[in-house]
Design a protein around this nucleic acid. Sequence first.
DNA 1: ACTTTTGTCAACCAAACGGTTAAACAATAC
DNA 2: GTATTGTTTAACCGTTTGGTTGACAAAAGT
Lengths: 201, 201
Amino acid sequence: MSDNNTEEKILDAAINVFQSKGMDGARMQEIADKAKINKSMLHYYYRSKQKLFEAVFKTAISIMAPKLREIIEKDEPLFDKIRNFTNGYISLISKHAYIPTFIIQELNRNPEILQDTFIKEFGNSFSTMKTTINEMVENGEITPIKPEHLIINVIAMSIFPFVAKPILKSVLQKDEKEYKLLLEERKTHVADFIINSIRLK
Amino acid sequence: MSDNNTEEKILDAAINVFQSKGMDGARMQEIADKAKINKSMLHYYYRSKQKLFEAVFKTAISIMAPKLREIIEKDEPLFDKIRNFTNGYISLISKHAYIPTFIIQELNRNPEILQDTFIKEFGNSFSTMKTTINEMVENGEITPIKPEHLIINVIAMSIFPFVAKPILKSVLQKDEKEYKLLLEERKTHVADFIINSIRLK
DNA sequence: ACTTTTGTCAACCAAACGGTTAAACAATAC
DNA sequence: GTATTGTTTAACCGTTTGGTTGACAAAAGT
């Protein structure tokens, strides 16, 4: 995975184990084995399981958050923004399939973790977007909708198929290949579906 | 919680602990404490942690699945079906807030668990719905859409707000009360949003 | 009446866990 | 060439974990 830098090898292995098994299911020994180093090294570089977990969690956030903010803050028409979000985010998550479930799982286990981080990360990004949407509604450019619901809908339709993959695969009776194709289609479908709902015809 | 029937008290406590902490995070001692019985009783009635977990998992499925099938299989117009689903399912989940995250978490941990169960539970329910939607598209009653995407969209917008509650609360800057209100609104909003997208105007 | 079955509990157990230690080893500085 | 510093390892430690045991009592069966 990486070179012979021990600290990096540890973090790589920890990302692997923590993101697939969660804080409670992860074992320090397994991380050490995957990194091919002595278990003591984990504590030498990261002091405790909790600290190592926090490092992993932060990398997960740092992968997901910038793109989210970039898309939200970029000054472009709402419909373009929606298209960029669904396309960009579904692409990003496809490369990091474990992250959404990992973040959701750990945030449900301990909701306080990132309360502050998230608010200061997205606080006013959301406010400006909220007023934009409200203005468009008032100007009669889109159908009346609460900004909150529109945002939830966009995020839900983009991310949920990754989080609920095992269930949806069963319900829809798709194999791995077919399901991947479905996700690929959603990069454009989700935006089309949303815009079709809110635009005036 | 329940009467003095030990086996029931155990299951109640196990549901409580497993659904909030997951298989890995749950402790047999905590379940025993919550049930106010000796830890040995857990093994006397359920043999092992794994078996007890499976009992809990099955109750979770048995709460969620019947309503899902009922709505899918009921013979009524598609738009009514969508309205019944979003309204009925969001109401149901509101009463069992931990279940969706629990099922998703555990199914990601071990995707094989319910592969068969789900297919035989929803297999042909989905097939008939699929043909219904395709027919409506062909008859020009709704906008062209793949049944798979429509179904994913309905489920995603209904369930995701429960699964991602901590994140969405932060991003949208809502307190508990405001978020509950948002969920309440979604009982009708989600159906309106979907129907607005697929109906011809 | 007494024997068997079922239910309950405190005490116990081996294994696995996160974490520590002390000494060996390697790299750089003096 | 030796002291110093940072890095790595095997062995170890205390605690927690899921699970077991054996004693005992309350029913149930005969």
